[in-house]
Amino acid sequence: MARTSNMLTILLNVLTLLLGILLLTGAIWTSVHPGGATLCEKTFAKPYLFTGIFLVVLAVIGIVGSCYKINSLLYIYSGVLFVMIVGLLAFAIFALVVTNKGIGKVVANQGFKDYRFGDYSKWLQKHVVNEQNWDKIQSCLIDSRVCLSIASAKNLKEFYRTHLTPLESGCCKPPGNCGYLFVNTTYWVPPKSGEIADEPDCKSWSNDQKQLCYDCGSCKVGVLNNLRHLWRGFAVMNFSILVFVVVIYSISCCAIRNNHQEPQPCHI
């Protein structure tokens, strides 16, 4: 029984070690080749680096502790897993709470919904689409070329029948009440009168394909909508990961209980 629990712990930690090395490699490559990485990719480099280091260190502790039956290391390993279990559970609950709102209202005769800041939690508004984070998010939107995926439409009527995601609706066209005239899906001109609605989003619109409405409040709302679905997906996935981590934690506790007092090298 002791041999089985230790071997399972070693096997699972070898897989964790490989994942950590993969994340470290990606983060280091991005840092060494800054010219070949976009700002969006650079933003994720540090989280990948720290996550990779954490997984490598945790895996090494688990492998050494299990292989040589060093209970002191396994206690540390199990303690970290317990903290992970609490953290994963807390994040899953938190993600479900802050993404509970966000419904959207159907706009008549148009293939998309009208989303407003009030449809989303105050926490998301304050901590996600604030001035400090928006430049990075905007860079990611430009790098992903989200607006190039919009199907071509010959006229305004056909365009409004096109299904647009909240992100495409908010970032790739001026708001409907601005009065801009349709030229093509990402090119709109001011009305002939020269007057547009006195709203910040109307003045933020640009026909520069790298600007469009990426700095509009409607674009931020589109990001919040995407983030809401993403976080809810993470919350569901977290419960699956939580079950996996609980299994590893149980195996490590079993290994500690069954280890002999004298450390003995394992034979793989």
Rank of each mutant, 00 (worst) to 15 (best):
L96A: 10
S169Y: 05
F117V: 09
R116E: 14
S169T: 08
G194P: 00
V107P: 03
Y187D: 07
V243I: 13
M237W: 10
V83E: 04
K122T: 13
C216G: 06
I150G: 08
K113H: 07
C202R: 09
G36A: 14
V189T: 15
L224R: 00
P190G: 01
R161Q: 09
I28P: 05
N13G: 09
N13L: 01
K157Y: 04
D143S: 12
A45I: 06
L89K: 06
N207L: 11
L49H: 09
F244V: 10
F159G: 03
S72M: 13
F239L: 11
C140W: 03
W123L: 15
L55S: 02
V86L: 02
K122I: 14
I196M: 10
I251V: 02
N71E: 08
N238R: 00
T162V: 07
E158W: 06
N130L: 12
G62K: 04
I85T: 06
L15S: 15
N71W: 08
C213N: 15
N155H: 03
L242R: 07
N238Y: 00
P47W: 05
I256N: 01
G118F: 01
L81A: 05
K203G: 10
I103A: 15
C254I: 01
F44C: 04
H163K: 12
S240L: 13
C40N: 15
N238S: 13
R161D: 02
L81E: 00
N184H: 11
I70V: 12
E131R: 10
S149T: 13
S206E: 12
L148W: 15
A255R: 02
F117C: 04
Q211P: 11
N130V: 11
G111A: 10
L224N: 07
I28Y: 13
I142G: 12
G62H: 04
A2F: 04
I150V: 11
G26A: 15
A27G: 04
F94L: 11
V57L: 14
G35I: 04
S204T: 15
T16S: 07
V14H: 02
L227S: 06
K157H: 10
V64S: 08
H267C: 15
K154P: 03
W205F: 01
G62P: 08
Y77H: 09
V14I: 14
R116W: 12
